[in-house]
Design a protein around this nucleic acid. Structure first.
Lengths: 231, 231
DNA sequence: TGTACATCAGTGAACGCGCGTTCACTGATGTAC
DNA sequence: TGTACATCAGTGAACGCGCGTTCACTGATGTAC
């Protein structure tokens, strides 16, 4: 069953634990929906989430100790979503600059389709709770590690030391995530404005990749101390 | 007669309006202090802020309609702080790469010294309230415009179209602001870790500036459509 | 100059309300025999 | 296979508490004469 059903039902002939998982998912979804209505996660209450989910307040405790625990579960879930995105973008095998533009388009669509998750992730990245903040940041690090591996696999930036490549990928992930709230705040039905935002985003990433190229050249001219450049 | 207290005093022989401004400042400071204790802005209440400020809850209304209004005032105040930083960093007139490293060091210190404001700004950049979010983003745009003007003044990237330069500056401001919460979450008393974070940050900005150089080269080889390149 | 009045920043009490959390419960599902 | 019991996801009522907001107030500061 696709994730985007109008309102997740809980019934049918399922086992007890399946039903419990369903309610859990509904609670998570309910929190995201409230965030989607412009609420900030830190201001959500147990009763409010339970109400949105259509269960009695007390039922919340069967699934989460507190709203903070639910928040961590949301980060985890969204991490999986993001990783799926990366895996898909990985498939593309165009020329470098075309690949970039295409990846950005894919990302744009992805952000819009997973609006609520990105809303949550972007705001908790530097949000109120330290736990959540660190969890999101941890995900971002994993994310950029996977991206660096991809670059290695595609045999790009071979001459670049791993640490530097990692750093570049961190910058890219950073830029991508910073773009998310801007995408999400775009007024709907303004394709021109949207195209401009996309173009701006593509150019920023081009700058970063060009910078990485030049860095590579620089490394060849004056070798970095942390790694001998084989030749 | 009241003795000197460590907390900000409101007494002395000031005019009524001066005293009012003082209380207002104390309320703003109180909100920042609560944020500094790990609270998220969206979860702050009027009574809570008033309590921290040492005034009766009702007094809050003499200064702000709601916590949201106080939030906007905080953004404004922090914008002024940030602009001051820019003005100072502007003074430096080293060679390009040395200037970068120095600017980053200045920025690091600045972030640590204005911990609370940066905590607030970073989390409201993509936080819960749309108004606050747009206010912060608006500040960031102003910020990158001023930076672009500085580059023009220093006669850097002369060949680059203004729109592109703007975009590069946006990327830089972005990267700077994303670094803030990482700086703020650094465990104290670990100079090595701090140095690494700083180094990473410097390198990211170097990549961006190198990218801008290459872009310039590229523009010379294949002129951009949006502007004739004079020569 | 002094006096009489207006202003208004901050007070203190009170209100209704939704919150988080607790408790004993219900009744369908799961399990042992 | 059926029966008897255990489990436990979700219920419903109740609690004490802090919230936002209101109101009438106080008393120092400011102003007009």
């Amino acid at each position: 069953m696709p994730a985007l059903s109008p309102a997740p039902k809980r019934q049918d002939s399922l086992s007890r634990s399946e039903r419990k998982d369903q309610t859990r998912a509904i609670l998570l979804q309910a929190a995201l929906q409230l965030i989607g209505e412009g609420r900030s996660f830190a201001s959500l209450g147990i009763r409010e989430i339970a109400r949105q989910a259509g269960v009695v307040p007390n039922a919340f405790y069967r699934h989460f100790r507190s709203t903070d625990a639910l928040g961590l579960a949301l980060v985890e879930e969204s991490g999986i979503t993001l990783r799926r995105l990366l895996r898909e973008a990985r498939q593309v095998g165009d020329a470098k600059n075309k690949m970039l533009r295409r990846s950005v388009q894919v990302y744009f669509e992805y952000v819009k389709q997973n609006r609520l998750q990105f809303l949550f992730i972007s705001s908790e990245r530097s949000g109120g709770s330290k736990n959540l903040r660190l969890a999101v940041r941890n995900d971002m690090v994993h994310f950029s590690i996977e991206m660096a591996q991809d670059f290695r696999r595609l045999a790009l930036y071979n001459e670049m030391p791993t640490a530097t490549l990692q750093m570049v990928c961190g910058l890219i992930v950073n830029t991508m995530l910073a773009a998310a709230p801007e995408i999400l705040d775009l007024p709907p039905g303004q394709p021109l404005l949207e195209a401009e935002t996309l173009e701006n985003f593509v150019q920023q990433l081009q700058i970063v990749l060009l910078g990485a190229d030049c860095w590579k050249d620089r490394a060849q001219r004056q070798p970095q101390p942390e790694r001998q450049h084989d030749r």
